[in-house]
């Protein structure tokens, strides 16, 4: 294989199709940036879920003497009722641990939370509900536990912290979906562009390729400059896409999101570095594949 020949063919080929090459580089860059963004959002969602699922609890608040509601018709929860609730929770297969919090403990926590507000002085321990804090085996499976205890006598209310986080996860899922949808659209555009670029390049060089076929150059040798041309454009585009991704993470997450929303850890440039090799390989392989498929149509034996 004559390296110099291949190299000069590629550079002349890229130069001759300069506008197409630029378009191709941009489209690949956007595809790769979007693909990377989708991957980052997914890993963000995983991190956030993992972070919160470790802390997620179901709180089963029991009646005190001031309680109203269907389960509290008999006034404050009795010892028998409390034991039933505890047994129900502890025997449920999805429950990992059950902690009991009495009114004094609830008051201590309440006072701590509202330390510097006036409300702390008005509330007394007997106004607060005693509760069971339930940790789950699998945070996704909260429905069963909630419905198991919700109707029991002496239960005032069952709250599930997951419900509070659901909108955040839905937003992350939505972003991820949008990023992947854009990726797919961009990839379609990239395939068409690569096809056109290669077709133009093949047309520009039909004299050379015609002679090459005639004197018995192998298909591989004839197609190699075209495929490498696409690979180089793909690599350039991928590098630009990754740079854009670094910029995006730095600007949007690093400067804006992370300092303001501190309830979870956020993706940073270390995550981009981790994804970089995959994104580059994906961009190059994809471009080569697209050009190879096009060449099979336009450079026949």
């Amino acid at each position: 294989m004559r390296f110099q020949y291949v190299l000069s063919e590629i550079t002349t080929g890229l130069r001759r199709n300069l506008t197409m090459t630029i378009a191709l580089v941009i489209v690949v860059a956007i595809s790769i940036a979007m693909l990377g963004a989708g991957l980052l959002i997914r890993s963000q969602a995983e991190t956030t879920k993992g972070y919160w699922y470790d802390r997620i609890e179901i709180s089963v608040f029991m009646c005190n003497e001031y309680s109203t509601g269907a389960g509290c018709a008999d006034g404050a929860v009795t010892d028998a009722q409390r034991d039933t609730i505890r047994q129900t929770l502890e025997s449920h297969p999805e429950v990992d641990e059950v902690f009991y919090e009495n009114q004094e403990q609830a008051f201590a926590r309440f006072s701590e939370q509202f330390d510097d507000s006036d409300i702390g002085g008005i509330i007394t321990p007997d106004q607060l509900p005693e509760s069971f804090r339930v940790a789950l085996q699998d945070p996704e499976q909260y429905d069963g536990v909630v419905s198991a205890v919700a109707g029991l006598p002496g239960v005032q209310e069952v709250t599930d912290q997951r419900q509070l986080l659901e909108p955040l996860f839905r937003t992350l899922d939505g972003f991820q979906l949008v990023a992947f949808a854009i990726t797919v659209i961009q990839i379609v555009a990239a395939v068409l562009l690569i096809g056109n670029t290669i077709r133009l390049a093949a047309f520009n060089r039909r004299r050379e390729t015609g002679i090459m076929r005639l004197v018995g150059a192998s298909n591989f040798y004839i197609q190699l400059p075209f495929i490498l041309e696409a690979a180089i454009a793909g690599l350039l585009g991928s590098v630009l896409g990754v740079i854009a991704l670094f910029g995006g993470v730095e600007l949007i997450v690093g400067r804006f999101i992370a300092p303001n929303l501190q309830f979870t850890s956020w993706v940073d440039s270390a995550d981009v570095w981790a994804a970089t090799p995959w994104l580059l390989v994906a961009g190059v392989l994809f471009s080569m594949l697209a050009s190879f498929v096009t060449l099979r149509r336009y450079l026949r034996v």
Binding site: R207, G210, I211, R213, L214, V215, G216, A217, S218, N219, V301
Partner: peptide, 19 residues
């Protein structure tokens, strides 16, 4: 198909328009 190039290496071709 992939052996066709080897056949063509044993055949020289000349055209009216030189190419």
């Amino acid at each position: 198909n992939w052996k066709v190039p080897h056949l063509r290496r044993r055949i020289g071709t000349v055209f009216q328009d030189f190419r």
